[in-house]
Computed example of a mutant assay.
Amino acid sequence: MILCAGESLIDMVPEHGTFRPLAGGAVYNTTIAAGRLGEDVAYLWPISRDPFGEMLLAPLNEAGVNLDLCPRSDRLTTLALVTLDNGEAVYSFYDEGSAGRMLSVQDIPALPDNISAIFAGGISLVPDPCGGAIESLIAQNHSRLPVVLDPNIRPFFIQDEGAFRDRLNRIIPQCDIVKLSSDDLAWLYPGLDAQEAARKVLALGPKIVLQTGGAAGAHAYWSGETVTAPAIRTTVVDTIGAGDTFNAGVLASLRRQGVLGKDGLAQITAPAIKAALTLGAQAAAITVSRAGANPPWQHEMPGH
């Protein structure tokens, strides 16, 4: 079972002069996508008992996600208020003392034996105490379980850039796969092109660094020749949840190929990586073809 650990929240999206609440959060979206692809997946993040918490639970249950490691909380759900400034989305977070924000190191349980891999990332890595809790989860388990990380860097959410860079520099060497967008790489290593920046990340210790770039496709940097998979041509409605869905496709492919493990990743081949990038791209193409973070179900995937 793949364990996804990280934020869920409610995006308050402008609509006809008011706001429409939508379930979201990068790791939450990946969890939903993996469940819809038929993967055995569990989620770790506090869920509020408020009405927004119930909104978050419904899609998780619908996708068959295991919620045994999700504590319920009387604290409120994090809200991300989206406003438009000349067409650009601007976010305001209501997060102080929220259910997720207050996840602490002491709340991280011993993982059951049926957990076979960890996926983490998103803005859950940024503030404390939750950032320290996710860091602790990785530190406690990375020696026996493969760890896949997508920091999904959101500069507007980072109040202490130095502390966040320090956290990433501690976490990345403990990860087996790190996925970064072109924007993430530009933030991490200003002035370097994406390939140079990805190689810098690879030098920190991961076995594979994945770079996504929308229409430019996806690239994998590892010990062999760079592996590339083109983006799938489609009509784009919006890109919400695209990267998160890509992550789920990669995880699903690696698990189905039997290489989502410490031994499997140590001996991975270029064709196996290519297959993972391709499934990720196929899943993401469906997500961008419809509004919002609405990842595909397995029966919607090509060749099913």
Rank of each mutant, 00 (worst) to 15 (best):
I47E: 09
L60N: 01
G97D: 13
L84N: 06
R49I: 12
G64K: 06
M55G: 01
R49V: 13
Y94D: 02
M55N: 03
L84F: 05
P71N: 07
V65T: 13
S104R: 15
L60R: 06
A99S: 10
R101Q: 15
N86R: 14
Q106T: 02
N66L: 06
T77Y: 04
G64V: 05
L69P: 08
F93R: 02
E62T: 12
F93K: 04
D68C: 10
E54Y: 01
I47N: 05
D68F: 03
R72N: 05
P71C: 06
A80K: 06
D95W: 13
S48T: 01
S104V: 03
E88I: 03
M102R: 10
D68N: 14
D74M: 07
G64L: 08
Y91G: 03
Y94G: 02
R75T: 02
R49F: 00
L79W: 00
S48D: 04
L69T: 07
L84P: 06
P71A: 09
G97T: 12
M55L: 15
E96M: 11
A63H: 12
C70T: 15
M55W: 01
L103I: 03
R72T: 15
T77Q: 05
Y94I: 11
N86V: 03
V105D: 10
Y94F: 15
L67R: 08
V90D: 01
G53A: 09
D95M: 13
V65F: 11
G87F: 01
Q106P: 00
L69V: 07
F52Y: 15
L84S: 08
S48N: 06
R101F: 08
R75G: 01
S48R: 06
A58Y: 00
Y94H: 14
V82P: 07
M102A: 02
L56N: 10
S92F: 04
D74Q: 11
T78Y: 02
E96I: 10
D68T: 15
G53H: 07
V82K: 02
A58V: 12
L67T: 12
Y91W: 05
D68K: 14
D50Y: 06
Q106I: 00
A89H: 07
G87W: 01
R49L: 13
D85P: 00
V105L: 09
F93A: 05
